[in-house]
Design a protein around this nucleic acid. Structure first.
Length: 102
DNA sequence: GCTCTGACGATTT
DNA sequence: GAAATCGCCAGAG
């Protein structure tokens, strides 16, 4: 099952271009709930559609990779494969994607 | 309807 | 710089 919040999150995630990552804050802001970062994180973690939902492109606002269901190390490897020079503790700000805010 | 928990954030110690 | 604390929203029991 999927709540509307989760759907909103996944939809936004699918809009992230390859080679870019997004922070939970930006993602939360994109769905109109900038304070609901925790709810957003929960939604991402429960993502049932790994194909259209690149959850590995989601990082924390402090540029740390955060967590990953299949292992943080895997997440980092995937992002590096997309051209992102990511590290466990920090991610290059220039590779962080920002949603078009209104 | 209340309480606990969570892939978090920001601030303080 | 790392750990602890408080605050935040939504979902699950």
């Amino acid at each position: 099952m999927a709540t509307k919040l989760q759907h909103a999150v996944w939809t936004k995630l699918s809009e992230i271009p390859k080679g870019k990552v997004v922070t939970y804050v930006e993602l939360a802001r994109a769905i109109g709930k900038p304070k609901a970062v925790r709810a957003v994180a929960t939604a991402v973690g429960k993502n049932p559609n790994l194909v259209v939902v690149p959850c590995h492109r989601v990082i924390r606002s402090d540029r740390s990779v955060g967590k990953y269901a299949s292992g943080v190390d895997k997440k980092i490897a995937l992002l590096k494969s997309e051209g992102i020079n990511i590290q466990k503790r920090h991610v290059p700000p220039e590779d962080i994607f920002v949603f078009d805010k209104k």
